[in-house]
């Protein structure tokens, strides 16, 4: 049992770090633009599919770089073409537009790559790695390490770079930031690009581990769940939320699936969130203020 727990913890941590990365993109976008992006799952898929397609032509590292560039361009384009005209419009209208955006992106992907599961060629060493005696897939280890590095990178970026600081200012108070010379347009454009990149990296990591198929789009909702769990206006909360959901899902979900009733794994996260919200209505780290919708 304790080995089961420990293995669940490690595997959960690995999946959770990917969730955290995806949730980070989600939270970042919400914080700087106040847009809840229902197309986030599609952005994850986009990263996964594009990288797989590119690895057929170019070496894996090049494919990753190109994918991230493409993701950034996609993010910029979405902001410029679709989101900018909607600035200041009712929140629900904007949310439904992101939903429609998801349809378009998914439709394009199915049109180009078809609907079946795709896998990366063998780019990581096969076999099983043992961490503290617990067997774990190498993809999991790579994912966790990459996600951790990227999270650190994002953190440094927001802490020290000018654009990062501008984005934090805008997240705090859009109006005040704009009077201080922060270009909201630029901030929004960067936010979309970052969200898109974070999603794409998440897609690649998950793809390396599990392969890419359309069920993966569901992680968009899990990222949303992670963000809510942590508290909408808290970036560290989103990261912790992602990791927590990964771990709970693997341990509790895996245990209940195997021993009590089947099919519980995917909804464990939501049950946990429901319970947390009943006790803490603003998530674990969210600040209590009235959310106007």
């Amino acid at each position: 049992m304790s080995e089961f727990l420990l293995s669940g913890l490690l595997n959960g941590l690995a999946v959770g770090s990917i969730y955290a990365l995806i949730a980070l993109g989600f939270a970042l976008l919400y914080k700087s633009t106040k847009i809840l992006n229902l197309a986030h799952g599609e952005l994850v898929l986009f990263g996964g599919y594009l990288a797989i397609a590119l690895t057929r032509a170019v070496p894996f590292p090049v494919a990753v770089v190109l994918t991230l560039l493409a993701a950034a361009v996609l993010g910029f384009t979405v902001e410029r073409v679709i989101m900018r005209p909607l600035f200041g419009q009712p929140l629900l209208s904007v949310i439904i537009v992101t939903l429609a955006l998801g349809y378009v992106v998914r439709g394009l992907m199915v049109g180009i790559w078809g609907g079946s599961t795709r896998n990366f060629p063998q780019v990581l060493p096969g076999g099983i790695v043992r961490v503290a005696g617990i067997p774990i897939q190498p993809a999991g280890v790579y994912s966790a390490v990459t996600a951790a590095c990227l999270l650190l990178g994002f953190w440094l970026f927001f802490r020290y770079s000018l654009v990062g600081i501008a984005m934090r200012a805008a997240a705090n108070d859009q109006l005040t930031a704009s009077t201080l010379g922060v270009s909201l347009r630029r901030v929004f454009a960067y936010a979309w690009a970052f969200a898109s990149i974070a999603g794409a990296v998440g897609g690649i990591l998950l793809g390396l581990w599990l392969g890419v198929n359309f069920a993966l789009g569901f992680v968009g909702l899990k990222a949303l769940a992670a963000v809510i769990l942590g508290g909408l206006d808290s970036i560290p909360g989103a990261i912790l939320g992602g990791v927590t959901i990964g771990i709970i899902e693997t341990i509790a979900g895996g245990y209940i699936d195997a021993n009590i009733i089947y099919g519980f794994k995917d909804i464990t996260a939501f049950v946990v969130i429901l319970l947390v919200l009943l006790v803490r209505p603003y998530g674990l780290f969210g600040t209590e203020h009235v959310e106007r919708l």
Binding site: P85, L86, P90, S93, V97, V104, L108, G111
Partner: peptide
Amino acid sequence: GKIATPLREIVFGVTLIALLIWEPGG
């Protein structure tokens, strides 16, 4: 032929986006 199903999804999405950009009030 290959993109018949996704075409529907794409057109549906684009229509929604266009409609809501044109008139966010619906």
